[in-house]
Design a protein around this nucleic acid. Structure first.
Length: 424
RNA sequence: GGAGAGAUGGCCGAGAGGCUGAAGGCACCGGUUUGCUAAACCGGCAUACGUGGAAACGCGUAUCGAGGGUUCGAAUCCCUCUCUCUCCGCCA
């Protein structure tokens, strides 16, 4: 969410930000409407507060008069009239603020200057690591998974539905190995605190990290409780400090969490439906950092490096892509996607999206810090990225580390966790 | 699920319609004193919005779990909800 002052004092910058995302046509009128609502809001506030001040003074004189044993009927009458005006103006104000807030919640973050404007076609490859293996004679991961008895797609669909899968035997063990491997790496080598969090969260949390109000249809909702299954551990982990003020000495704060993630993928029907590329439930180890504004750019590089380290240790070739403005997520100011090459499907698969949200989520979620002892609190900057998402990593391992005989070599770094050198 | 108790500033805790943005204590910050440390003493110490100001800061409004109500006036009375604790039941 943007500071209301953006609408007031920097409306051109706001408009420019939307233009760079290619969203000005759609959001420009909303911005104008917000500016108008802001003017109304301030006029109404002035009117209502004037009357409240007068009423407060009147109540004081009632108290004085009564103590002196004098008649206060006139003052009480005036005060009652003021009260009626106040409740009228208050509800007018509430309406204005609801509309205004509704618009603010719909405006995406403004991208940093390094981010190319425009859509996906302007995404820029920043660097690549490793050699993509030739696709010839490499089976896609779903064939390997089924041939080796590691993934059971049919029964996943039977017990839940399409897009739900079952890992079994060494496949299930591989999931568990990845979990421990990634968490150990980030806690022991990269300095993250491990957290274990709820995977069903309330509306306020979903709003804090910007999944709501815009993306309600993409999530599984528990109707009775009005709760949501998380699409990423970003939600509970970032909301850990919602409505709190941190000390400067707490920053940067680095948290990592394993969690299952749930996505309805509404509107993605027919896209990447085979295998592990797009499933409704998957596992992920998430990295979240809270930083002071001055260092958040560096923090993004650091966090991206931590996610990259996982791919390097898994010996999987990947590239780092700086997303163009129109392709960055709603809340993000700057995003690097990590894409791993999967020769079986012949595609670069997004396995992590590392983003600097600047103060956008922090303002929504009310996460502040005190720069100096006794100083005024400021909003923190929040960052996160997957480190990493399991299914596509598994797909990449199956395909990239596949041997001519159809077996799969487990990367050395994972062997202590997996307990064997190969699958099949 | 049933019965009861509770929610006040960073923390503890008073307050029971007006004199309370909120006593007192702790913590924290600044100062005085002091071989050092500690102690003692003095002072400071919430957030948001609006408004004036270059700024320091001033003024106004709101905030005692959340929302509604009663009243000229609510931390205080009433209603609803949320959360915490205790006991009972059920249960991995």
């Amino acid at each position: 969410m943007h500071d209301l002052r953006m609408v007031r004092d920097q409306i051109d910058a706001l408009r420019e930000g939307m233009r760079r995302r290619g969203a000005l046509k759609k959001l420009g009128p909303l911005i104008d409407r917000a500016a108008e609502l802001d003017r109304n809001r301030r006029l109404t506030i002035q009117a209502v507060e004037e009357r409240k001040a007068e009423r407060n003074a009147a109540s004081q004189s009632v108290a004085r008069l009564k103590r002196a044993g004098e008649n206060a009927d006139d003052v009480q009458k005036r005060s009652r009239e003021l009260g009626e005006e106040i409740s009228r103006l208050d509800s007018e104000l509430a309406e204005t603020e609801i509309s205004l807030n509704g618009i603010l919640l719909e405006l995406p973050n403004i991208n940093l200057d390094v981010v190319p404007e425009g859509g996906e076609e302007n995404n820029a490859i920043v660097r690549t690591w490793g050699e993509p293996r030739e696709a010839r004679a490499v089976k896609p991961h779903w064939e390997i998974g089924e041939a080796l008895g590691l993934i059971d797609f049919q029964r996943g669909a039977k017990i839940s539905g399409s897009g739900f899968i079952v890992f079994r035997s060494e496949g299930a063990r591989l999931v568990r190995a990845l979990m421990s491997f990634m968490l150990d790496l980030h806690t022991r080598q990269h300095g993250y605190e491990e957290v274990w969090v709820p995977i069903a969260v309330n509306r306020a949390s979903m709003t804090g990290t910007s999944q709501l109000p815009k993306f309600e249809d993409d999530m599984y909702r528990l109707a009775e409780e009005d709760m949501f299954l998380i699409p990423t551990a970003e939600v509970p982990v970032t909301n850990l400090y919602r409505d709190e003020i941190l000390n400067a000495s707490d920053l940067p704060k680095a948290l990592t969490a394993y969690s299952p993630c749930f996505r309805r993928e509404a509107g993605a029907a027919g896209k990447d439906t085979r295998g592990l590329l797009r499933v409704h439930q998957f596992d992920k180890v998430e990295l979240v950092r809270y930083a002071i504004p001055e260092t958040s750019n560096d923090e993004l590089e650091l966090l991206t490096g931590h996610a990259e380290k996982v791919l390097q240790l898994l010996e999987l070739p990947y590239r780092v892509v700086r997303l163009a403005a129109g392709d960055t997520g709603f809340a993000s100011a700057h995003t690097y996607d990590l894409e791993v090459f999967a020769p079986g499907v012949g595609a670069w698969l997004e396995v992590s999206s590392c983003s600097n949200f600047t103060d956008f989520q922090a303002r929504r979620a009310g996460i502040k810090y005190r720069p100096v002892e006794g100083g005024k609190p400021r909003f923190v900057h929040t960052l996160n990225g997957s480190g990493l998402a399991f299914p596509r990593i598994i797909a990449a391992i199956f395909e990239h580390h596949q041997q001519p005989d159809g077996s799969v070599v487990i990367p050395a770094a994972l062997r202590p966790y997996f307990g064997a050198e190969r699958l099949g």
